[in-house]
């Protein structure tokens, strides 16, 4: 929309044409009520000088910003179909400046890559390189291509088309909302059309992943650790636009981790998961081994390791069963429990 058109159509028509502009007026504290048949120009003529000063309204800034906002919002509806499906990482250097020795790492959508290495080895830096789509300009001097190309600066800085969504153990819900209100708010901010369907789908998935079910009326801050994790993963898988998910550990309590990863894969995400847990590490198709700030190796999970994973999972299962029996007041016996 050009400036002239904006200034001359009525505010009511503007809201009809671009419904989100109403919130923009509200967020900028513009008193438009009762003046919907005025143009923006006329509105600012009738608003009291004192109100403009009191509400810290900058007319010029408001007009420029609303134009920018309309452009931005219009671009969402167009770019919705662009799907990132490949990440390529080229080698850079270790912390001490020596070159990394791998050729290149290619990760496609639907793949799960584990990242292993001691604490402080550079896992966060690798994740940051991917998030930023590094182009020889980060401390590691790595180069990261998205769909085979270097990102333009505006793509790297875009807040609404962020490449990467993050999930970590330390994350909590902080809003004072119920599960349903929360999902509705997120769906609204993503401007999803079939909002109710989306909310129901995420709610059902989260309950499937969580060890213990929860209702739509539960305040999100009252969910258990496992339930929170389940809701965060289901919500990120289904509603987040970011094609790449970075996971920092999923603790083994109150959530079906295997199903959670399967969900992310079926939603066509690229999953990178930094972990110290052998079960999670082996759930990856490959694992990246990091040491001293550099990528030491890339290892494909072997068939033998997959068999070991099955063993580990059954051990894990045994642990879980025992945990539940103890929780419900039962005694453990060798015969039944091992």
């Amino acid at each position: 929309m050009d400036k002239n058109t904006l200034l001359n159509i009525t505010i009511g028509d503007l809201f009809l044409k671009h419904p989100y502009t109403k919130d923009f007026f509200i967020d900028h504290l513009i008193p438009f009520e009762g003046h919907e048949n005025y143009s923006i120009n006329k509105l600012f003529e009738v608003i009291d000088e004192e109100i403009i000063e009191d509400k810290a309204i900058n007319i010029e800034l408001f007009i420029n910003n609303i134009l920018e906002y309309i452009d931005l919002m219009s671009s969402y509806f167009v770019s919705e179909n662009v799907v990132e499906n490949k990440v390529t990482i080229f080698p850079g250097t270790y912390k001490d400046g020596t070159a990394e020795t791998f050729d290149m790492i290619e990760i496609s959508k639907g793949e799960i890559i584990s990242i292993v290495g001691p604490t402080g080895s550079g896992k966060s830096r690798l994740l940051a390189d991917i998030e930023w789509a590094a182009n020889l300009d980060t401390p590691t001097k790595r180069k990261v291509l998205i769909n085979g190309r270097v990102l333009e600066p505006h793509e790297r800085f875009s807040a609404s088309n962020k490449l990467v969504a993050q999930l970590s153990q330390n994350m909590n819900f902080v809003m004072d909302l119920t599960v349903e209100e929360f999902l509705d708010l997120h769906a609204t901010s993503r401007m999803v059309e079939d909002k109710d369907d989306m909310v129901n789908k995420i709610f059902a998935k989260a309950n499937e992943l969580a060890g213990e079910g929860f209702s739509k009326n539960t305040p999100i801050t009252q969910l258990s650790g496992g339930q929170s994790r389940a809701l965060m993963i289901a919500d990120t898988a289904i509603l987040s636009k970011s094609p790449i998910i970075l996971i920092d550990e999923i603790e083994n309590a109150g959530i079906d981790r295997k199903k959670a990863l399967e969900l992310l894969v079926t939603e066509e995400k690229i999953v990178l998961m930094s972990t110290h847990d052998p079960i999670l590490a082996l759930m990856g198709d490959k694992r990246i081994v990091i040491n001293n700030g550099g990528i030491e190796k890339v290892i494909d999970t072997t068939d033998e390791e997959r068999n070991i994973l099955t063993e580990l999972e059954s051990l894990d299962d045994t642990m879980m069963k025992m945990r539940n029996r103890l929780r419900y007041g039962k005694k453990l016996t060798f015969k039944e429990d091992l």
Binding site: Y20, D23, F24, D27, H28, N64, N65, E68, Y69, L72, F157, A159, S160, K162, A165, Q166, L167, S168, N170, M171, N172, F173, V174, M175, F182, L185, H186, S189, R190, S228, M232, D235, T236, L239, S240
Partner: peptide
Amino acid sequence: DIVSQAEREVYTMKVQSVNPKAI
């Protein structure tokens, strides 16, 4: 690092809606 992905996304949108020009 301590709030959920969804809350980060919603918050970012709120910031963007009051300052669409900013990085």
